[in-house]
Design a protein around this nucleic acid. Sequence first.
DNA 1: GATAATTACCCACTATTACCCATAAACTAG
DNA 2: CTAGTTTATGGGTAATAGTGGGTAATTATC
Lengths: 158, 158
Amino acid sequence: MLKREMGTKTFTGEFRYSIDAKGRVNIPAKFRKALPDTSEDTFVVTRGLDENIVVYSLDKWRQKEEELLKLSSIKPEHRAFKRQATRFATPLKFDSQGRVAIPINLLQNAGIEKDVVIIGMIDEIEIWDPSILERYEETEFRLDAEDIEAIDNYTRSS
Amino acid sequence: MLKREMGTKTFTGEFRYSIDAKGRVNIPAKFRKALPDTSEDTFVVTRGLDENIVVYSLDKWRQKEEELLKLSSIKPEHRAFKRQATRFATPLKFDSQGRVAIPINLLQNAGIEKDVVIIGMIDEIEIWDPSILERYEETEFRLDAEDIEAIDNYTRSS
DNA sequence: GATAATTACCCACTATTACCCATAAACTAG
DNA sequence: CTAGTTTATGGGTAATAGTGGGTAATTATC
């Protein structure tokens, strides 16, 4: 049987799950399959800039580490940046059923209690509390025509 | 049986412990496992540049020693720097339960009494007093959008 | 050199986590 | 439609992590 499951190695789509009594959350099978072998069944979860949790593949995280290691250990603002970036990062290997146990402090920070929405963001994944996501959609996420034009220019220029 | 437990050999995440009656602090199991064999169950603790304690793997410390040896023994400021970096460095082997006894002067300098926050910083570890860390977060560490962008560019360019 | 203080080395208990097996629902292939 | 497979979810059990404390060995003090 040939793996016809080629195609997308990126994370796309939206999924809804709930956290079980032991604090485990399922990672969509689609996303697990999109993980490169070098990521060793491991995702790295951390705080997002919004009220959510961000998930990277282990590969992607290693890349980020490389960058952070270039920072000066003398400059206070560099240390602060590095600290902020690594402090909440936790590598998680998913179990044989495809679940991970997300640290409580991350769940709390994202306001997650039971249900979650998992969103594919191409090279990373976001985990949201459903009602908080809804609130963001109604306010923070609103983009006007100007915003969109600015973004369009940005992607074309670089 | 080969340890296939590869994954991340770096220090990440945040942990909270307290110092027991005998002055011992736990080192997160995750960090102990991340130690290379050549570090012989030993961490080197020393003063941080912030009001905290910094912990290196024995390997990493040896590297730092190499660098310090390159300094001139004639130039006063080189001697001062070398002295400052070495004076408080103490190698500590953790016991069978994974704890180390940190020298009192380091604890005092970091304002640590009972509770500690241990933060993984990729290639080193920081130990903080919880309330001091909090204070730093609110003041010294505050990075505005400009700072962040500057640092981000820094890591990408080099 | 005797005694006190400190440190190193064990052993024990509890909560948490890792690892395994089970089941129901959803999906795929023929 | 049906049988086999995969996915999502639940739960049992063994191993590990974190914590406390006892005692012998070492070091310091007088």
